[in-house]
Design a protein around this nucleic acid. Structure first.
Length: 589
DNA sequence: GCCGTTTTCGGCCCGACTGTTTTCAGTCG
């Protein structure tokens, strides 16, 4: 069936409803119900349309936070591709108000007020009335709030939306180093979505302990990276950075570091879930610790020093930050079934990298030396086999030359095992760019989509399954083809493609290249649930790109364990696995 | 709007900072 609305679109619809209801001063809990549902849906590994086709309304209702009303709204969207309720709501609110509400300091109440009293319909209107001094005359507003709004508009203009983790993490680590260098702090740590390794982050959260919080705040606000101070208090300060991001610093007492770190790491959903459990157990959880009793009437302190203590107070084992998305980790913790997450040091080989035989920047010997220096036991050189005119690489007529190059690398770095591989294009019809007679001469075949991203989900599903069914394919490279913040990638039935991969023992790659991170977290999780094997590849085009750091982060967010990723095996075991008879008759040359 | 071995109705997480206030609402995370 043609998919009428994807999870992303349904999630966006609920987010929009939540915002409109907020502007209308609706019951905040009703607003939150929509927000929560939107978040839940965005992180579902399966498409709602598939869930509905299989299990109907009952299956929708089985999703946490989806009740009779939201269930029937989802039903309407997957059946008709639209939602009448949202259409009606939209008519009542000027589209531009949502951007107004995004401005720093402009919440739903203030937005509603400027709309009703000053007919502000968008950010441009807001700027106009602010500059005309009309804002300051509103009840409860003053000169300063007007100035702040203008600053907020400027900030919005100069800052993008969310920033990729891969770009923001190094900057945050620098800020942490600088704070440590002041010698004013006991501990300094990154918190927030960045600590959870979310693929994009909204701002940088840093937590520190100190006995001189005022001095720490002074030092923080005076850092060279800081453009403007938004707020400054003894426990919390916020600044805008020149790099176009916001950074928040909290300073707490040493003995509540664990509670604070837990609190500020989030996610919001995870924390709310835990606090709900706390209420039932008669305890209160805040950034200052876990207490017996209610928020109004606190009793004895139960935990605060470490995150482990916080979880233990709820009779739970420690939950890794990457899992704290309220995607079932709390139930798993309760049941004792949390995954033992993969770590960077578990990776023993790199199964996807390029040399200057195709579009890489370094020759095979250089890449091999760099890989060995990184401590890898084995690599697969996988230069492109692509029909795209601009891409050099493996063709029907130069296999001997390619193997000769790889032979040279093997001689130059004898301690590193080097597989002769290829990254072959999956053509629009699912056939591969290179014929089987070439592929069967290679040790490791990664098949990837590099063109024609705009097929229907049905066509793309068939395309990938056909590639999976090629007897010489070992892995599907960067399966969704997305580029973070740039390209959404191809759309297909994850269920059907993963099922085919499992049946044929073909691996799904976790591409660790910073712009890709593909499979993404929720797809990793689904692959694991379905028993699909995975590989990890750096997709390096230069020696310094032989780095799996961000790929491992993404995998950890997807509940991936060492045993789920084939190249965590030692060379000996990997070779055995690769040579073993399999449903598709693999071979290792 | 969701949810229930404390409730099918009445809850729903907790606290800091700011500005414009004379005691607190709004915003943010």
């Amino acid at each position: 069936m043609m998919r009428l609305m994807t999870n992303a679109e349904i999630s966006a619809a609920f987010t929009m409803i939540g915002k409109i209801l907020e502007l209308q001063n609706e019951n905040p809990f009703r607003v939150r119900a929509y927000e929560r549902a939107a978040l839940t849906i965005a992180s579902l590994p399966r498409e709602l349309s598939d869930i509905y086709d299989e299990g109907g309304m009952k299956a929708l209702r089985a999703i946490g936070g989806i009740g009779p009303d939201l269930g029937s709204k989802i039903e309407e969207m997957v059946k008709t591709g639209e939602l009448k309720y949202l259409k009606e709501l939209r008519k009542k609110i000027p589209e531009g108000l949502f951007a107004v509400m995004q401005i720093e300091g402009m919440g739903p109440k203030k937005t509603k007020m400027v709309w009703e009293k000053l007919k502000v319909k968008n950010v441009a209107d807001l700027e106009k009335v602010a500059k005309a001094g009309k804002l300051a005359k509103l009840p409860k507003w003053g000169e300063l709030s007007e100035k702040k709004v203008l600053q907020g508009i400027e900030t919005r203009k100069s800052m993008g939306d969310r920033v990729p983790l891969t770009a923001a993490l190094p900057l945050a680590e620098l800020l942490v180093e600088k704070l440590k260098a002041t010698k004013l702090c006991g501990q300094v740590a990154i918190a927030g979505s960045m600590r959870r390794r979310a693929e994009t982050i909204g701002d940088i959260d840093i937590l520190a302990t100190s006995t001189k919080p005022a001095k720490v705040m002074e030092a923080f606000c005076a850092l060279g990276e800081v453009k403007r101070v938004l707020s400054k208090g003894p426990t919390k300060s916020s600044v805008n950075l020149h790099a176009g991001m916001q950074a928040d610093l909290r300073v707490v007492d040493e003995n509540v570091f664990g509670a604070a770190l837990h609190y500020f790491t989030g996610s919001k959903g995870h924390n709310v879930h835990l606090r709900g459990m706390g209420v039932k157990a008669g305890i209160t959880i805040s950034e200052y610790g876990v207490y017996k009793g209610t928020a109004e009437k606190k009793g004895k302190l139960l935990a605060s020093k470490t995150e482990e203590d916080v979880y233990a107070s709820l009779k739970l084992p420690y939950i890794a930050p990457e899992l704290r998305e309220d995607r079932g980790e709390i139930d798993a913790a309760r049941a004792g079934t949390l995954p033992k997450l993969i770590e960077e040091r578990d990776i023993k080989g790199d199964l996807h990298l390029h040399t200057d035989f195709s579009d890489g920047g370094a020759d095979a010997v250089t890449m091999a030396k760099a890989a060995y220096a990184k401590g890898l036991e084995y690599i697969a050189i996988t230069d492109h086999g692509s029909g795209m005119g601009m891409v050099r690489g493996l063709k029907e007529n130069n296999l001997a030359q390619y193997l000769k190059m790889i032979g040279k690398a093997r001689k130059a770095v004898p301690s590193l095992k080097i597989l002769a591989g290829v990254e072959v294009d999956i053509q629009p019809d699912g056939s591969l760019y290179l014929p089987d007679k070439i592929l069967k001469e290679l040790d490791w075949v990664v098949a990837s989509v590099h063109s024609q991203f705009k097929q229907s989900p049905e066509e793309t599903t068939a395309r990938l399954i056909r590639a999976i069914e090629n007897p010489f394919v070992h892995a599907i490279g960067h399966p969704t083809g997305r580029l973070i913040g740039q390209r959404v990638g191809i759309e297909f039935s994850v269920e059907q493609v993963f099922a085919a991969a499992k049946k044929r023992s073909v691996a799904m790659e976790i591409n660790a290249s910073p712009p890709r991170l593909d499979l993404r977290d929720i797809h990793c999780k689904r692959a694991k649930e379905m028993g699909v094997m995975m590989t990890m590849g750096s997709d390096a085009h230069a020696p310094e790109e032989l780095d799996m750091r961000f790929g491992v982060m993404q995998a950890r967010r997807g509940w991936v364990e060492k045993g789920d990723v084939m190249n965590t095996k030692s060379w000996k075991d990997f070779e055995k696995w690769l040579r073993a008879p399999s449903p598709i008759g693999r071979r290792l040359g």
